[in-house]
């Protein structure tokens, strides 16, 4: 894997709209068959990054490559259209066209398309096969957009917020498709503002904030790199004597929410033993004991202060 050239690559990618810098010197790489999630709040630069890779956005500086080709250049983009699948953040289908017709039309664009009927079955669109796009629910529209991104048997797929506005069943269908793509060796770059989504589907997570990559790695690597350090978290009855417990633990104890506590030290076995014996000595119940840091906190710290528009 380490020697294979990346299927998707951005180096020093910068996208400006007038005086506003949407993407600022971003580096990004996805190996063949890898699923990479761009995670960030709205306005973090995820869509601009993906659209630069798709060839929609002019880049102001840096370079982008998809399957070794330059999507910013006319001939590179042309050569890529048959090899990449694109799911826009919204829209992209004739408002008066239903899933069956849209899939047949898109299939005709490609050399070796998937069977539209089979794709509709996989994405649970058979019941609405003839319903015009404008009358489909948000989830059905997203699933059709996904099917249209896949119909040409792409080698690289870009999915911009694939599960936004999708009900739980539809999310499972879309996540299942992403897992199948990965198993088939297809490279997937997706954007999401939901941490849970990124954790579930991606091999690697790239966290963006204000146009820049602030962290990247597997979910475990990111959690381990918690800039605030490790913690012990537990649940117990509200109103414990945090000062007394803090003296016992030799670390600060805070009650984050009623009955939920954080001890500001690493959760090694000796420390956990001190905590449990302190509680046992007072005959107090214990629940939800966790050590280490959580990806959620990493994400919140890295993107702190950003407006979630």
């Amino acid at each position: 894997m380490a020697t294979a050239p990346p299927a998707v690559e951005a180096a020093g990618l910068t996208v400006r709209y007038g005086s506003k810098t949407a993407v600022d010197r971003t580096d990004l790489a996805a190996a063949p068959g890898e699923v990479v999630a761009l995670l960030g709040r709205n306005g973090a630069g995820k869509t601009s990054t993906v659209e630069a890779l798709e060839g929609y956005r002019r880049i102001s500086a840096g370079r982008v490559r998809v399957l070794g080709l330059d999507p910013q250049e006319r001939s590179g983009h042309r050569a890529l259209t048959g090899r990449m699948g694109v799911m826009l953040q919204r829209g992209g289908v004739y408002p008066g066209m239903g899933p069956a017709e849209a899939l047949r039309l898109f299939a005709s664009y490609y050399e070796r398309p998937l069977d539209p009927g089979e794709l509709m079955a996989r994405l649970d669109l058979e019941g609405v096969a003839a319903t015009p796009w404008r009358r489909l629910s948000g989830g059905e529209q997203q699933r059709l957009s996904m099917a249209l991104a896949l119909v040409g048997r792409p080698e690289v797929v870009f999915l911009d917020e694939p599960t936004a506005g999708v009900d739980p069943g539809g999310r499972l269908a879309i996540r299942g498709q992403i897992a199948d793509l990965r198993a088939a060796g297809v490279t997937v770059v997706l954007t999401t503002h939901e941490l849970e989504e990124a954790e579930r589907v991606a091999d690697r997570i790239v966290i963006m904030s204000r146009g820049r990559v602030v962290a990247s790695g597997t979910a475990a690597e990111l959690a381990a790199a918690d800039p605030g350090g490790a913690r012990i978290r537990f649940g117990a009855p509200p109103g414990l004597d945090a000062v007394a417990l803090g003296q016992e633990m030799e670390a600060q104890v805070t009650e984050d929410r009623p009955g939920e506590y954080t001890v500001a030290r690493a959760g090694d076995p000796a420390a956990v033993a001190r905590l449990t014996s302190w509680l046992a000595g007072r005959n107090l119940p214990l629940r939800d004991l966790r050590t280490g840091s959580r990806l959620e906190e990493v994400f919140l710290q890295l993107t702190a202060g950003e407006e979630d528009r």
Partner: peptide, 18 residues
């Protein structure tokens, strides 16, 4: 105009149709 608003033109730009 409506195809542009619905992103159809944009989407078709990244297919081999062009």
């Amino acid at each position: 105009g409506f195809e542009r608003q619905y992103g159809v033109l944009k989407r078709l730009g990244s297919t081999p149709l062009g």
